[in-house]
């Protein structure tokens, strides 16, 4: 770069020696990208093609791919049962995303007030973020044990008869979703609190002078200003909910009678659980999950992000 004579115009990147510069820049860029691309290729792109291949194959009892079955595995998915599984997956995702974003938002608003002790509260509320899904599930199973539950005991004190959290078919999915909400809210709280902290005092001041107070100020000024954080929280929480496996596996193992079985659980079940090695069907379901993920991404980026206000 130093040996290259200055172009006549004095501005970089213009014709005259610029082409070799650009080639070198491009090569350098490619070189810097290589480690990332290799990782992506080995761990994402290659397995994706392998999933496509496997989804057209049967498996022997050891899981080796055998004869081609064409699209038979996909045809197997055209059943009311699989439709119910998808619907349950969407329901679970909604049960996680809506409270998993609104709850931290409600907590984050008072937490950003400059009051003494708020840092302690913020740390305490963000702590669930540090738990792994499995650890959280085990702890909550103990908290909700039908025999010894402290939660049920507390409810009993105020005269509420606790339901069978993990074995009542009406409650099991809600319970697993609630534990997931508990574990995602810590992270979302950090994201939203950081967003709120950056809201400009001057803007709020100006709004107040214009007569916008309370809810109006929150909806018209604060929400648009934290919308990038909010959008980010929605997208990552959606992903976490779509991929939630540990909670389902440990808390209910898909039961009672399949009422907490989601798409990811079903993939795990077909491929690895109970000595199954039906990688063909599992891969087909995995590709459905890919489509679901992409569709949700398209909806979120196409509809929601239009309303996001980037500065």
């Amino acid at each position: 770069m130093l040996t290259r004579p200055d172009p006549p115009t004095g501005r970089p990147g213009k014709p005259g020696g610029g082409r070799s510069h650009r080639v070198r820049e491009a090569l350098l860029g490619l070189l810097l990208l290589t480690p990332g691309l290799v990782g992506l290729g080995v761990f994402v792109v290659f397995p994706l093609f392998q999933a496509v291949y496997l989804s057209t194959r049967d498996n022997d009892i050891l899981g080796n791919p055998t004869r081609s079955v064409g699209l038979a595995h996909f045809a197997e998915l055209l059943t009311p049962e699989f439709g119910a599984l998808l619907a349950r997956t969407f329901l679970f995702t909604a049960l996680v995303v809506v409270p998993g974003v609104l709850l931290p938002l409600a907590i984050a608003a008072p937490l950003t007030q400059k009051l003494p002790g708020m840092r302690i509260f913020r740390t305490a509320f963000a702590l669930p973020f540090a738990y792994s899904a499995s650890a959280a599930s085990v702890v909550w199973l103990i908290m909700l044990n039908p025999g010894t539950s402290p939660v049920n005991w507390l409810l009993g004190l105020v005269g509420v008869q606790a339901p069978s959290w993990t074995s009542d078919p009406g409650w099991a999915l809600v319970t697993v979703a609630a534990v997931t909400v508990w574990s995602v809210s810590g992270f979302n709280l950090l994201v939203l609190a950081a967003g709120l902290a950056q809201v400009d005092e001057d803007v709020l001041e100006a709004a107040r002078i214009d007569g916008a107070t309370g809810p109006r100020q929150f909806v018209s000024i604060v929400l648009p200003m934290i919308s990038p954080s909010l959008f980010f929280a929605v997208v990552t929480t959606t992903l976490t909910a779509l991929q939630a496996l540990g909670q389902v596996h440990i808390m209910t193992d898909g039961g009672p009678n399949g009422s907490t079985s989601t798409l990811v659980y079903s993939i795990f079940d077909r491929a690895f659980h109970n000595n199954n090695s039906d990688y063909g069907l599992a891969s087909a379901q995995g590709l459905v999950l890919l489509v679901v993920g992409v569709l949700l991404a398209a909806v979120q980026f196409g509809v929601l992000e239009r309303r996001v206000h980037y500065r």
Partner: peptide
């Protein structure tokens, strides 16, 4: 971000394909 979301889903899809 869109690609990341799609790929994250894809990597889960690929979980079933490790043999």
């Amino acid at each position: 971000a869109g690609v990341a979301l799609g790929l994250a889903a894809a990597s889960t899809a690929a979980c079933g394909a490790a043999t």
